[in-house]
Amino acid sequence: MATAAIAESHSHGEVSHHRTSTGLNHRKVAVWAFIGSECMLFVSLISTYLIYKGRSVVGPYPHENWTDPATGKVFKEILNIPVTSASTFVLLMSSLAMVLALAAVQNKDKPMPTGWWDRQLRSSKLWLWMTALLGTTFLGFQAYEFTSFVHEGLTIRTNLFGSSFFTLTGFHGAHVTVGVLWLLALLGIDYKRGLKPADALNVDIAALYWHFVDVVWIAIFTLIYLIK
C-alpha cells in the first residue's frame, strides 16, 4: 500500500506545472494523510500489545523472571534495555542525519562555504548515507534482539507476549526497511545526476516518512521497553 502511494507520487513529480488549490504539492498532502493513517495502524498494534501485557500464561516475560514449572528452568526477564537504548539512540541520530540531508539539498544552490565542516554539512550524499547507515544499524540491533530472544526461548508462537511483541516491532522494522530502500533510491538519483534544490520535495517526503517511523519508535521504546 505504502509503496504504491509512494510510487505514484514519485512519478507524478514531473508534472509540477499543475497548479493546486492550496499551493501544496500533491505528494506531500498524500504523505501526510498516509502518516495520519499509519497512526491508527500503530495504535492498533500497540493497544494489542498493552492489552495482552501480563496475560501470557507461560514465559518468558518482558520484565520478570519466569520458572518453567515442568522443567524448573529459569527464564530471565527478556527485554534488553541497554541494547535497545543504544538502538533507540541510533534511530534518533538517523533523524538528525535525515534533516541535515534535507537541508543540504535545499541549500545546494547557495555558494559553497570555505570551512571544512561547513562544506561537509552541504553534502547530501554524506547525510543520506549516514541516515541509511544508522537505519541499517538499527535494523542490525533488531536482528540481534530477535535472534537472541529466539535463543532464550521466545518465538512469535511462544505466548501472547511473543506474538504481540514480534508483530509490533516487526511491523516497525519493516517500515524502517522500506525507509532504507527509499533512501538508497534517493542516493541512486544523487549519484546519477545530483540532487538539486528542485528535488528538495522528494527528499522532504522521504524525510517525513523517516521521522514518522522514528517517532513511532519513541512511543514503542517508552510503552513497551521502559514501562513495566
Binding site: 533523524s95 538528525l96 535525515m98 534533516v99 524525510a207 517525513l208 521521522h211 514518522f212 522514528d214 517517532v215 519513541i218 512511543a219
Partner: peptide, 9 residues
Amino acid sequence: FAIVVMFYM
C-alpha cells in the same frame, strides 16, 4: 514525539 514532529518534520 512533539519535538521531532515540530522541528524535524
